[in-house]
Design a protein around this nucleic acid. Structure first.
Lengths: 107, 107
DNA sequence: TTGTTTTATCGTAATATTGCAATATAAAAA
DNA sequence: TTTTTATATTGCAATATTACGATAAAACAA
């Protein structure tokens, strides 16, 4: 069909999948790395950093916000974006948990 | 358009994006978590664990293999799958690197 | 008020992904 | 050999994503 059969998987599996789906596009990786590079909130400016039109960037920012990967604070005409440390930690923990319980003698 | 404008992003950004794209689907998250749960190579058996038809599972396994997230060893008629510890570590490191250089006083 | 700036939304075309039936392939068993 | 078992590939329909022009909305300046 094309739609994922989300109903057949656990809530947690669907959550993890959509969290990583948010960073499964190079534009969104670029946004994350830009926010990391400037090391502060960025008001405006993101559109000029990417080789994409403004509506497209806005759409990618919306997806990152929905996934809780970035936070956006309204500052007058502009919006201040920054990374959400908690979500970064959550994703780190997902993999460190896997690494810990991995039997490396396998295969 | 629909296609991502991959040419305009860095090699590294495209790599990171396709790595996480591999775990952006609940079926592939379920495969990872099943391999983790059994804590050993699994020969066959994966198809029966998922609510999907055999060709669909095969397709998901192929994507996980292409992303180096799982390894598959042929064992006669069956194929032994297990997680790739190096890729797990790589993904963990991506986020721990972000967490480390994150200015948490922001926003 | 009007104009400017910044971000969001709508509508839609191009492309990608998902899922599966049918079929193919490959190795072992009978 | 034929049959069985396990996995892969092909082809296609249904759905999702990506990208952007046009437009809207919101805040501020003049």
């Amino acid at each position: 069909m094309g739609a994922s059969k989300a109903d057949f998987f656990s809530e947690e599996q669907n959550e993890i999948a959509s969290l990583f789906k948010a960073i499964s596009h190079p534009a969104r990786v670029a946004i994350i790395e830009y926010l990391l590079k400037v090391d502060s909130c960025i008001c405006g400016d993101i559109v000029n950093e990417l080789p994409l039109a403004q509506p497209t960037v806005s759409q990618h920012l919306k997806e990152l916000k929905n996934a809780n990967i970035i936070k956006g604070n309204i500052e007058g005409t502009a919006i201040c974006y920054c990374l959400n440390p908690e979500t970064m930690k959550k994703m780190e923990n997902y993999f460190s948990g896997i690494s810990k319980s991995l039997n490396t003698k396998c295969c």
